[in-house]
Nucleic acid binder design. Structure first.
Length: 543
RNA sequence: GCGCCUGUAGCUCAGCAGGACAGAGCAACUGACUUCUAAUCAGUGGGUCGGGGGUUCGAAUCCUCCCAGGCGCGCCA
């Protein structure tokens, strides 16, 4: 359906132009199936009364085939009511080629990289990482269905102080296991997993580091071993959560392969670095940041920012048209400086967008769960996945806008499991499958020459319209980079299907009616599949 | 002190590029399982959209001030 096209044509015939024809599904049935306020937008531009414009457009649009009625109402809304035949045609198209009907090429093959999670490999993933994972993965899926070529990347902070501290913590535990006295590093990681890694290391390396200090080869070994293990754990946890990446970029590799050096050289040549007080600074203030930033400290070591500059430089070199960084909102202060980098490198800052995912407050039975990474007391993503389930957890994350603070109560998420929204949607899918199983048992073969005209019920028209409006939601979600809109749509669709299921039978009716209803069920199933797969939520054949 | 995010029903949250009478789920209360799965359905009640100004034909949405909560403001990562 291209209702928007008809309206745009009418706008052009008025000799006007509008950046975007807004379409909305009216809340009230009397306002038709679809509505546009475009005449009111045009009123200002054309200096004419909105209702007059609306009337003129309506009379043009009435000639178009999809519409049963085109009415002007209120201050200048144009309300459309579809012909049944238009709905049937749309349903038929949807069944004929679901992917073509449900996906839209909005990206035109542009290359987009979505970087998300990127947690320090110094401890297990916590629930906040899970939110980033759910959002990043869903956004990637969404864009991939919108004609973007998407790469999902995890950036590994395996250089610098934090991983060194991890190695040192493992080192201390290793010595303890060998019964050798060793001071535990002041800011070391005290979680039990560190002891576990030390035990594994002992199994592999034996006691050959018994008398070593934490330096040179020993330090390197402990760090590499620890990072390797932590990465393994994180990959496992993400796998258990149902999130996969296309690529893992090591920060250390950026140094080892000389990318940091080359990038800094380039900035230096452009005059964007300067020395002061023994350190090397980036002129961030010239690109909108409020302070200049150190890239090489006076002790000669690089800041985290140095490799981050190189990382983004490298991303752009790899040919991405757009970069999306999904960050925890606690890093928001970092946005201006990384945007400054993009501009300093000679690119429009829109090339990078940073999606800030707000903090998750973890509750158990209404009480906040204290978390501290240092002490090692925190609830991990793995624990929540096991206790609550990946589908429920993802669905909760994706039922909120990414920038809204989120309270996640483990008890509630579990307790409500039987009435959890995710099951509501999945159950609709399972019920449809059940119908098809039953149909096969009865020897009813779906498909073939179906007379969709048998679908005369209001509930059926409502369902078909909802299906045909999927692209409207989809385009909005892509444009706004908001996967949670998909979640809400799916709940609404399931909310139409369940009552329909309860009041209308599918099987055992007049054969042509049964076939038509099976076709409708098939279409609902396809859309549920499409939507849930964007969210990364599984599709149960039965429940 | 400065900056960013948030404030909508008892609770958790939507509200799509400013549009028509503000929505959903949960919780509460009434009802519906010999019929394709009751993880469902039908119904009832529930709101000064934090507050004040402003822009507009029209504001939960944009601007501004104030209040409340969260998060940031390192030669840490």
């Amino acid at each position: 359906m291209d209702i928007r096209g008809y309206i745009e044509r009418a706008v052009r015939e008025l000799g006007a132009e509008v950046p975007f024809v807004e379409l909305e599904v009216p809340r009230v049935a009397e306002h038709g199936d679809l509505s546009t306020p475009v005449a009111m937008v045009l009123a200002g531009r054309l200096r004419r009364p909105p209702r007059e414009i609306a009337e003129e457009m309506a009379s043009m649009l009435r000639a178009e085939s999809p519409f049963e009625r085109v009415d002007v109402a209120g201050p200048g809304f144009i309300n459309f009511t579809f012909r049944r035949g238009f709905l049937y045609e749309g349903l038929r198209n949807l069944l004929g080629d679901p992917a073509r009907c449900l996906r839209r090429d909005l990206g035109g093959g542009q290359k987009v990289q979505v970087e998300f999670v990127s947690a320090n490999p110094t401890g297990p993933l916590h629930l906040g990482h899970g939110r980033g994972a759910a959002v990043g993965a869903a956004l990637s899926n969404l864009l991939a269905r919108a004609g973007y070529e998407v790469e999902r990347e995890f950036y590994i902070n395996d250089a610098g102080r934090q991983v060194r501290l991890l190695g040192e913590s493992i080192f201390a535990r290793y010595k303890e296991l060998l019964g050798v006295a060793c001071r535990f590093p002041e800011e070391g990681y005290r979680g039990g997993y560190v002891v576990e890694i030390a035990r594994q290391l002992l199994g592999e390396a034996g006691d050959r580091f018994r008398d070593a200090g934490f330096e040179g080869e020993a330090a390197e070994y402990f760090v590499r071993f620890g990072v390797g293990r932590m990465l393994g754990v994180m990959k496992e946890d993400l796998g258990g959560f149902g999130v996969e990446f296309d690529r893992w970029q090591s920060e250390k590799a950026l140094y080892d392969e000389g990318l940091v050096r080359r990038c800094l050289d380039e900035l230096r040549e452009k005059g964007m670095l300067y020395e002061r007080e023994g350190a090397l600074w980036f002129r961030a203030t010239e690109f909108g940041d409020d302070k200049d930033r150190v890239v090489i400290k006076s002790d000669g070591s690089h800041t985290y920012f140095a490799s981050d500059i190189a990382y983004h430089w490298y991303k752009i070199q790899r040919g991405f048209d757009e970069l999306i960084d999904v960050w925890g909102a606690d890093h928001h202060g970092y946005v201006p400086r990384i945007k400054a980098v993009i501009r300093a490198l000679g690119h429009p800052e829109e090339r990078l967008s940073v999606l800030l995912v707000q903090i998750v407050t973890l509750l158990r039975g209404g009480k906040p769960v204290q978390m501290s990474k240092r002490s090692g007391e925190f609830v991990t993503l793995r624990e929540v996945t096991e206790e609550v389930g990946a589908d429920t957890t993802k669905f909760i994350f994706l039922t909120r806008s990414h920038d809204s603070h989120l309270e996640f109560d483990i008890e509630t998420a579990k307790k409500e499991s039987s009435e959890n929204p995710v099951y509501y949607v999945q159950y609709a899918y399972a019920r449809i499958n059940s119908i098809f199983r039953k149909a096969r048992q009865q020897g009813v073969e779906p498909g073939g020459a179906v007379d969709l005209g048998c679908l005369k019920e209001e509930a059926e028209a409502g369902l078909i319209k909802k299906l045909l409006f999927y692209p409207l939601m989809f385009e909005g979600a892509v444009r706004a980079r908001e996967p949670h809109r998909v979640t809400f749509y799916l709940q609404e669709l399931a909310g139409l299907f369940h009552p329909y299921y309860n009041t209308h039978r599918v099987l055992g009716l007049d054969p042509s009616l049964t076939l038509a209803r099976l076709a409708l069920c098939e279409a609902v199933k396809r859309v549920l599949e499409e939507g849930l797969s964007i969210l990364g939520v599984t599709l149960p054949e039965r429940m």
